[in-house]
Design a protein around this nucleic acid. Sequence first.
RNA 1: GAUUCGAUAGCUCAGCUGGUAGAGCAUAACACUUUUAAUGUUAGGGUCCUGGGUUCGAGCCCCAGUCGAAUCACCA
Length: 451
Amino acid sequence: MKLAGRLMSRRIMGKASFAELQDAQGRIQIYLNRDEICPGEDKTLYNDVFKKLSDIGDFIGIEGYVFRTQVGEISVHVTSFTFLSKSIRPLPIVKRDEAGNVYDGFNDPEQRYRMRYVDLVVNPQVRETFRMRSKLVQTMREHFNQLGCLEVETPILQPLYGGAAARPFKTHHNALDMTLYLRIANELYLKRLIVGGFDGVYEFSKDFRNEGMSRFHNPEFTQVELYVAYKDYQWMMDMTEELLEKVAINLHGTPEVQVGEHTISFQRPFARFTMYGAIQHFTGHDISEMDEAALRNLCKELKVETDNSMGRAKLIDEIFGTHCEPKLIQPTFITDYPVEMSPLAKKHRDNPHLVERFELICNGKEVANSFSELNDPLDQRARFEEQLTMGLRGDEEAMMLDEDFLRALEFGMPPTAGIGIGIDRLAMIMTNQPSIQEVLFFPHIRPEKEG
RNA sequence: GAUUCGAUAGCUCAGCUGGUAGAGCAUAACACUUUUAAUGUUAGGGUCCUGGGUUCGAGCCCCAGUCGAAUCACCA
């Protein structure tokens, strides 16, 4: 057999040596014997090239046959040896004993993130995390394709940013001498495609938000957004359950996933609460009839911080975020949000003060956000105008009015269900990682100083 | 942006009331034909994150800064 890979350890015993070769699949032990590799008088290849010039980290190629050593380890008996490529920097050596204890680990997060290539070479569990992330995305893509949806690409550079509440990154196009924004979401473009006649579209999209960083936030992050015509948010909830159950089973062979100290089950069906129901459940207060002033008082009582730019919707969001969200560990749908919080969602069929919207909360964090999409152009215009008012009042995240998007709606959009799923957050849960940096190959980090 | 903690050899980490730096692995050399955290002997390796200050003397104490982590705030 022939193999190529990176030399990860060497045990030289005179004329015989053992070493470990690592490739993308894993590691295997190889056995080299001087007189077999160098059958003639010239022993340079073994004595100099292998013993003296090779270092851990170098790439070599071998031919040989598989055998079992005296101690019982499956190894490759090398019959020919080729030096392929040199590592001129010392690779951190991570050693493991038989019990699996790690010695001299390459653990410093700063170094691991700055030199992810080294992290990946040396820490197999890191490679495994990223394989799982890839499989997660693959499973989702297959699922959407099976639904008959079309994978599409929409602009990252946008003249107007929209589709979410966030501060954008701003850039400048020289030839057109105009401001462009990096997208914070792709919602409004995907809906234009539904107007254009596609029944289902989705896009895995890098979005950019110019906000704080934490172990849950990176300035650029990945979302998948999916829009399906002639469906509503109830359908989307069922789809989401099915999807996530499938993802968990594909990754772990079971719908149960260990996340930190919790075992999270993605077995259908997930728990469901209305927004008001959840707040009543966790705080004991029925806020469904409260106006802004009453809510403000309640916030004070519940020790929820507020400021004057916050309207009724934001106040409710704060109460939920403080008192409900952190307690929701198992996947839970929160439905029926107040209309002011959701300028792109369709009004609830039974209650004009609510919208047909759900968020999926899991491990205390939002993982998905979905609604029956607002397709009434007159209502949409009114909602945008309300956002402008919020903006004037100091809400930096209020949405901008997008005339072209309104024009698209005026041509008619079928009833549509849409969802955005945070891939990084979901990957954190599905791979049991405590921080977003662990599921991004190259998380944002301040540049190193010169020298 | 705030608070707390951290930064010492390529990697993991010690270090003393403040007296000029130590281990293991890695590296180099020698020995060794079935080892596996190989082993034995020997050797080299440091601007103790940066800049100031206190002191006869600072890796250690004080001040300022850089970078990272955790928590908080904004957000997904």
